[in-house]
Design a protein around this nucleic acid. Structure first.
Lengths: 235, 235
DNA sequence: GAGTGGTCTAGACCACGAC
DNA sequence: TCGTGGTCTAGACCACTCG
């Protein structure tokens, strides 16, 4: 009555969000069928469908065939976190990016790494350790294992000028990955490289990537004290 | 020729992903127009559009009107992290969830919190501290400030049996939020509540939520040592 | 069995933005 | 200017699932 009928899928989405926010449709309640909403809004059902599907994707609605669409009872807090290249991250702050290769050798990975890259038991891998800095101050310590069985060309790659991450991104496409964020006490080696006190709490990011069933690499990033991973959430 | 033409938008999406993965279409390169792909795949342009739009949403493709679609040069590492209710998280592990209210009082928030909830300067808020446990072992310490100017009804809410988080989710819809993940040394109060050593590295999650321009609440969650936030990534 | 969402189609018009 | 993606339509059929 009061508001003009939305004709675009964005408009429908916004109107539905408004009705949920203002409790016109309450959590757990069923909302009208797509066909009815289409008639009310004076648009095609496909338009309503596009809007409702997006809302279902973000967890605000729950949809089931035959039984219809209802407002989700416990909208999950869901956050999309972007993990940019460390170089980009530093450059975006207007700082001078620095990179230094600390270690490059072949070795058998520690047990925990072998497990994370499951299947790559015992075999030798390429171990790379590198330091990323901003305006000369250490920011991130990178400890990486590269599976030479999957990425043999890494054996001859030169990681002295560019980080293995950038090299891998351009040369070895991955199909999926696992990410883990935790807090750890700074060890002796990390304290040395990052020039912080041993035992200091550091944010640690572990990532394993795969090409189909073959593990490509496992990396652990130690961030300097005070680092935050930030994201925004949509209600 | 070799592969059968995909007829569904999921099929198209998969085929496009395959061509990018196998370097048929290289990073930075333009790919054919929607209309041409539709003809090649023997489907409608809308079907191709749906597939390409999803790939653009995840950052794999970059699309511009007039100039067409190209493979993204630096596919951003992007991870979707779900932050479930702590109760659900614990129950999902098959453990018994426990909740205890430690503090409930009115007070002026510390400076840092007032800034995070910008605008709510000086005014009194509701301060709540609570402990979540699993099978009797402390898991998460919650320290929360609720803006009574935005949520006056919280003043009379009873947080002895249910966590303020669940109460807020059901009673105060939020339109947006900010999330920050960091590592911090366990302070004296936290060490006491979580029964861990002072100075231990803990994963800390800060979240502020808003209803339009009014801040609702700011919460800091201290996770027990060893906690991980896990997520998967799609290449 | 029947009702709901999921998807595809063929066509159309619009809006942006490179030329 | 005009080609490309962005979107809407009206209709159709399918797939899942509840009763």
């Amino acid at each position: 009555m009061s508001a003009s009928a939305p004709k675009t899928w964005r408009g429908v989405k916004e109107e539905v969000r408004r009705r949920i926010r203002e409790r016109v449709w309450k959590p757990g309640e069923a909302i009208p069928r797509e066909a009815d909403l289409a008639q009310e809004f004076g648009c095609a059902r496909a338009t309503v469908n596009r809007a409702l599907q997006e809302l279902a994707d973000t967890g605000i609605l729950e949809r089931k065939r035959r039984s219809g669409t209802r407002v989700a009872l416990h909208p999950p807090g869901r956050a999309i976190i972007e993990i940019p290249l460390i170089r980009k991250e530093i450059e975006a702050l207007g700082l001078r990016y620095g990179y230094a290769l600390l270690v490059r050798r072949r070795a058998a990975p520690p047990h925990a790494v072998a497990i994370a890259m499951s299947g790559a038991s015992g075999a030798e891998m390429l171990h790379v350790r590198a330091l990323h800095s901003a305006d000369g101050r250490p920011r991130v310590l990178e400890d990486r294992w590269i599976n030479l069985a999957t990425v043999p060309q890494a054996a001859v790659a030169n990681f002295t000028a560019r980080s293995p991450n950038e090299w891998l991104l351009e040369n070895v496409p991955f199909s999926r990955g696992e990410l883990s964020i935790s807090a750890r006490a700074c060890g002796a080696a990390e304290a040395d490289a990052l020039t912080v006190a041993e035992g200091a709490p550091l944010l640690v990011l572990d990532r394993t990537t795969w090409s189909l069933a073959s593990s490509i690499t496992h990396v652990r990033l130690w961030y300097e004290p005070g680092h935050r991973i930030v994201s925004s959430i949509r209600g």
